[in-house]
Computed example of a mutant assay.
Amino acid sequence: MFGKKAGTEELEAFYPIRPECVAEIPKTRFKPRAGKTLSARRWQAAFSETGCLDIAKVLRRIQRGGIHPSIKGLVWEFLLGCYNPNSTLEDRNQLRQQRRERYSMWKTECQNMVSVIGSGNFITTPIITDDGQPIEVEGCRVTSAVSDKKVAQWMLILHQIGLDVVRTDRALAFYEDKANQAKLWDVLSIYSWVDDDIGYVQGMNDICSPMVILLENEADAFWCFERAMRRLVYFYLLQDG
């Protein structure tokens, strides 16, 4: 049950605003509604003993009163299709571990090409020229010319991702920490390597940012973002006919 004072003050505690930006940010219109908002207690009650989720019950409550910020990341994993509501807790734990291992493998692959990935830093200037010649950048050195087309195309967009990361949700205190900016950059950079059909375009940073904020584990944030992109691509293809 939410207290009488539950409202913007409580919600803003989950997404603190930088003091100098408070006046520029409109107050949230969402307020937890007792008996209607999907709370942590209601969320837990929607699971069976084996861990299967009553998704219909969850959706009805979301439609009536939204999702409380404390559980948004957990709920989004189901809403975006990361997990089947009919899966058991054991099934999901196994799948989560497999996905984390796969992400770790991709991250290592990217680190071997660009050492700054996973370092807690990121780049905002090009590291190679258009014809693949290395450019000396502090903290990120490409040792030789890049001839592989896929690798070159990927390296050429990394600094653009960095520039967009710097502009992402700048009013949030979360991104005052450079490590959090680097986490967003890592997820976007690795995604653009793994899915080179899409790669990276401006705006993907804004889609990915909530996942990075809501899901503490970087791999979990990646997979949530990956599922969101699948849905967007599918929707685009439907619209395109």
Rank of each mutant, 00 (worst) to 15 (best):
A40Y: 02
V194R: 01
E90G: 08
L214N: 13
R92H: 11
A34F: 12
E24G: 03
F174Q: 08
Q153V: 04
A152C: 06
K72S: 03
T125H: 02
G3Q: 11
N121H: 14
L214D: 05
L156C: 06
I123H: 01
E218I: 12
E138Y: 04
R33A: 14
N121K: 12
H159I: 10
R231M: 15
D240R: 03
K149G: 05
A56M: 13
Y200T: 06
R227G: 07
I128A: 05
S104Q: 07
P210I: 03
E10T: 04
T28A: 06
W193M: 11
A152H: 01
S147V: 11
G73F: 14
E90W: 06
D169R: 01
K150V: 11
A182E: 00
S104K: 02
D148Q: 01
G132A: 10
F2C: 07
N112F: 04
A46P: 09
A228S: 14
C140S: 10
E109W: 12
I157M: 07
A145Q: 14
R102Y: 10
L238Q: 12
C82V: 12
Q202D: 10
H68N: 08
M229K: 09
L163R: 15
A173D: 11
I190D: 00
A182V: 01
T143Q: 15
N93Y: 04
P32G: 02
A173C: 07
I71C: 08
Q111W: 03
A182P: 02
W193F: 13
D164A: 12
S119L: 02
F47V: 02
L38N: 00
R60E: 05
H68I: 04
E20D: 09
R18G: 06
R102D: 10
C52N: 11
V142A: 04
N112P: 00
C110E: 01
V116I: 10
V137Y: 06
T8A: 15
N121E: 15
I62W: 06
E216H: 14
L79V: 11
E138C: 07
A173G: 08
N217F: 10
M155W: 03
W223H: 03
C224T: 05
R92E: 12
S70Q: 02
R227T: 05
S39Q: 02
V75Y: 00
L184D: 06
D91A: 12
L215H: 01
L232C: 06
E12Q: 09
R42V: 02
Q239C: 04
T108L: 15
A13W: 01
V201M: 14
V194N: 08
F30Q: 00
F235A: 13
L74Y: 03
S119F: 03
Q111L: 14
V22T: 09
H68M: 11
G81C: 08
K72E: 08
Q63N: 09
Y175D: 06
K31Y: 07
P85R: 01
E136W: 13
G139D: 05
F122G: 01
V201G: 07
A219V: 12
S87Y: 02
L163V: 15
D177P: 05
L238R: 00
A171V: 05
T88N: 00
